[in-house]
Design a protein around this nucleic acid. Sequence first.
DNA 1: GTCTATAATTTGATAGAC
DNA 2: GTCTATCAAATTATAGAC
Lengths: 181, 181
Amino acid sequence: MVYSTVEKIIEVAELQARAGGYNALSFRVIAKQVGIKSASIHYHFATKADLGVAIAHRYTARFEQQLAKLAENSTQPSDRLEGYIALFVQALTVDKKMCLCGILAAESDLLPEALQRAVQVFFEVNVAWLHGALFAGQPQAKAQAFFVLASLEGALLMSKVMQTDAPLEQVCKLLRQDCWQ
Amino acid sequence: MVYSTVEKIIEVAELQARAGGYNALSFRVIAKQVGIKSASIHYHFATKADLGVAIAHRYTARFEQQLAKLAENSTQPSDRLEGYIALFVQALTVDKKMCLCGILAAESDLLPEALQRAVQVFFEVNVAWLHGALFAGQPQAKAQAFFVLASLEGALLMSKVMQTDAPLEQVCKLLRQDCWQ
DNA sequence: GTCTATAATTTGATAGAC
DNA sequence: GTCTATCAAATTATAGAC
């Protein structure tokens, strides 16, 4: 796998933001990890806000690809839910990081407007997919979509700070039970 | 109501942290709002980490008082759930801010250790209360407790960034329906 | 308890050479 | 595209006067 400098910057920056949020992003720290100087980052991203938006866009795009694959690989809503859950379990157990847009959403009051909007899109995309691919036709489809996403974001955040997978695991268990009782 | 300088500092700092997280806290900004100089804050809180811990402690203590009052005022689990839900609805619609410990939990990877622990306590306290006051005796009490807290924290975060109360409202609606079906 | 003054560091960003 | 050099501003924190 060959990465361009831009891709490396975004990758490193994403991991940093997923650990400490937007204000934890530092051009110098990113540059050091990429192997360039901080001034060079400005060639690719004029401002920090631009970099933030780029991270959010790539994160959302990657998520969308995975959602599309989930819908291809399974038609059963319960199978799709299982795949959707796996995305959040991976964040916790493999990446050992928050959901990028989860942490940015929490900080959204003080984010640059363009970044706020980019984070908002992530949630709209997810709610729309859950609504259409999991709960289509159900009487409270929209509420169910909110519920699944909210409980997974919240459980991820709890598992991070409580330093145990239990919250996310238990929430997933109840989601599997309750979604189509 | 008369406030000491320490109380004013904590109050202002809490609101700031609930908008942008730990790194958005600025001694100078806090000092200006309180009406003192930033150096004076160090008289009350030696380091920024100490201030962070103080905010989290007061936030958790206030929450605990409200939880105790909820348990006093009602014995019906469904009534207690209603009161519990109201705490998060108030954060969104009155304070128009995140839950302090929700936003700090998201950032927990890069927080000072003492603050990490303080935030962890908030979640332990809430899970314990939900477990005992709402789901006592139920087969999946612990999982239910995780579920209620996670979905409310997540819904709050979604409502903030999507700039609509819908996610929190819909999640609350489903919680009322599903908790004791 | 609060102040002034200042240290030491880090921040995002720019100018201009190569 | 990346570099060096630098700027202006912001950061937490400390020393010492009052």
